[in-house]
Design a protein around this nucleic acid. Structure first.
Lengths: 220, 220
DNA sequence: GCAAATTAATGATTTATTCAAG
DNA sequence: CTTGAATAAATCATTAATTTGC
């Protein structure tokens, strides 16, 4: 039927987040998942596994965010200290990113009563003893900071460069060949114009978890 | 900054499309990208990232087109008529899908033979590079965190299975090869153009990542 | 014909989801 | 479970088509 992956509707997402934040649900068990799924299916197609995965990942990533936040706070304080010491040096720190921007501006569930989970729902969904301290609804964006790059490009993506066109990124070229375990070779430069014809296996569709291009969801 | 974006010449575009359609290239690895870039640079300015993005976008948009096409054919209204009433009934709706099947029926236009990639081109593009990724040291401290203890229910590794309803979870399994079917990754497409020795056999689904290319998410 | 105005394509980024190793 | 990495989807942003009025 639908070869596409689950794409949560805003309502679904909101409900899920409500369950996470207010309901304190972290790792719903099978029957909980089923109930949640049934509930959410009103707002769009969804399967139990989607719910499961969502909670898994959301929990993991909330923790990650929290940790990162603490970390950056530490760094920030260190930085402050450091800056303070060097206040009168000639160094100028240009604007220190801070472009972690938003807070989620999603409407609170109270604004959309129909979407909110009512207490009874939350109750029956709540797992026994499952409510944790719950970092609760701090929603931060994933974005942290970017090191301000000498040039515009060097952003994400490992090592993107902008100057020469062939020096765009340090492309690791894994050769999933068998030899991978026998000896670790040092990095070698890639030749742009290979002289010989490669014997190689690889390219899409070979080698272990292939490049195979195609995820199962692809109708190709 | 970003003065202007890449604007592919007709020749470049044609070659890229040839590579995509006839060559079956979808996600070129690093060395392939370099070679393609080198090749295309004859026809105009281009960098590796342009090639990378092109394949990303083209793949995504082709899939999108296809999906739309399929979508319109199939009764799509079932989803829309999912009413709220049904929710609280003891509905047993099966969302059996698991079926994707299409195979791309290789569109094959090449009206300008002199621009099409010839065999040698395709060959060298299939060469696998030899550089192995530098080992990145993981410094992640394992933090202690009491997992939500109450319900570490049976799931975890695959015991999630049908309850009364559909079996919705196939989860990853220690043995992902067999029987997994619904919508998990490791399915491969056949090569449209097995130019090089097709190593049909490889260690199925075990270890070894696909050709890494680069990550699109690393502002962390 | 021809630009300003609109719209469609598509290059480039960012975000979300999945995979699979530890 | 936790987590980094890979990938797909969504989105942003700019260029090309195209429409429209003159």
């Amino acid at each position: 039927m639908s070869p596409t992956r689950w794409c949560p509707t805003p309502e679904q997402l909101m409900i899920l987040e409500e369950m996470y934040n207010r309901g304190g649900i972290r790792t719903p068990n099978a029957s909980q998942i089923q109930r949640i799924t049934a509930h959410l299916s009103f707002y769009g197609k969804i399967e139990g596994k989607n719910v499961f995965y969502w909670f898994q990942n959301h929990k993991a990533r909330e923790r990650q965010k929290l940790r990162r936040k603490l970390m950056s706070k530490q760094l920030y304080q260190q930085q402050l200290l450091h800056d303070h010491q060097q206040l009168y040096n000639l160094h100028q720190y240009h604007d220190h990113q801070n472009n972690f921007l938003g807070f989620n501006s999603s409407p609170s569930p109270s604004d959309l009563p129909h979407l909110s989970i009512d207490k009874s729902s939350a109750d029956y969904l709540r797992q026994a003893g499952g409510v944790e301290g719950a970092a609760s609804s701090l929603e931060m964006t994933n974005r942290t900071w970017k090191v301000d790059p000498p040039n515009m490009y060097e952003m994400q993506h490992c090592l993107m460069r902008s100057y020469n066109d062939h020096d765009w990124m340090m492309m690791r070229d894994s050769n999933p060949n068998l030899s991978c375990c026998s000896s670790n070779r040092p990095l070698k430069t890639l030749e742009l114009f290979p002289i010989t014809t490669p014997i190689v296996k690889d390219q899409q569709g070979t080698s272990s978890k292939p490049t195979p291009i195609y995820s199962s969801t692809s109708p190709y």
